[in-house]
Computed example of a mutant assay.
Amino acid sequence: MQTVFDAAGGADGMLRLAAAWHDRVMADEVVAHAFSHGFRTDHTERLAAYWGEALGGPATYSEQYGTESSVVRLHSGHGQHEDMDRRAIACFDEALADAGLSGDERLRRALHDYFAWATTTPMAEYHRSADDVPDGLSIPHWSWNGLEPEG
């Protein structure tokens, strides 16, 4: 069966989606605050690689950029921010259309469900301190059936 990554257009589809999401986020007054400290010039490429790996693509993020622990640390220690999370998810849903990925309802739903889960679960779990994030976390994998068991 085709992975969500493949159905979304592979690496090119992930890059289009990451760029569209980044554009939407930077235009949102609430979510853009998360980037007020600045961001890496290769943020879009790194994000596309991360999403690609999580959605059944190659392990590009793990091999070239970092670990799940490092990603979760970046998103940790900022307190709870449910409104920002809701707006980030809304930006993602709009970015799906911008990237041409909203026409297939099954694909749109899988991508939405993944992003909503990732935003509100692993990326929000350590809201008190990034120091609470354990080493050795693995990038969660998401399929058509949702979160895949580790191992």
Rank of each mutant, 00 (worst) to 15 (best):
Val4Asn: 00
Phe5Asn: 04
Phe5Tyr: 09
Ala7Arg: 02
Gly13Met: 04
Gly13Ser: 06
Ala18Phe: 00
Trp21Leu: 08
Trp21Ser: 01
Asp23Gln: 14
Ala27His: 09
Asp28Leu: 13
His33Ile: 13
Arg40Glu: 05
Thr41Tyr: 12
Thr41Gln: 15
Asp42Ile: 06
Asp42Thr: 08
Asp42Ser: 11
His43Met: 09
Glu45Ile: 08
Ala48Gln: 05
Glu53Ser: 04
Gly57Ile: 00
Gly57Asp: 09
Pro58Ile: 06
Thr60Met: 14
Gln64Tyr: 04
Gly66Lys: 03
Gly66Cys: 04
Thr67Cys: 12
Glu68Ala: 09
Ser69Val: 02
Val72Leu: 02
His75Phe: 03
Gly77Tyr: 01
Gly77Cys: 02
Gln80Thr: 06
Glu82Ile: 15
Asp83His: 10
Met84Leu: 13
Ile89Thr: 03
Ala90Trp: 09
Cys91Ala: 10
Phe92Arg: 00
Asp93Leu: 09
Ala95Met: 04
Ala95Cys: 13
Ser102Gly: 13
Leu107Ser: 11
Asp113Val: 15
Phe115Glu: 12
Phe115Ser: 12
Thr119Ser: 12
Thr121Gly: 12
Pro122Arg: 01
Asp131Pro: 01
Asp135Phe: 03
His141Lys: 09
Trp142Arg: 10
Trp142Val: 01
Trp144Arg: 05
Trp144Cys: 04
Leu147Trp: 07
Leu147Thr: 00
Glu148Trp: 03
Pro149Ile: 13
Gly151Phe: 09
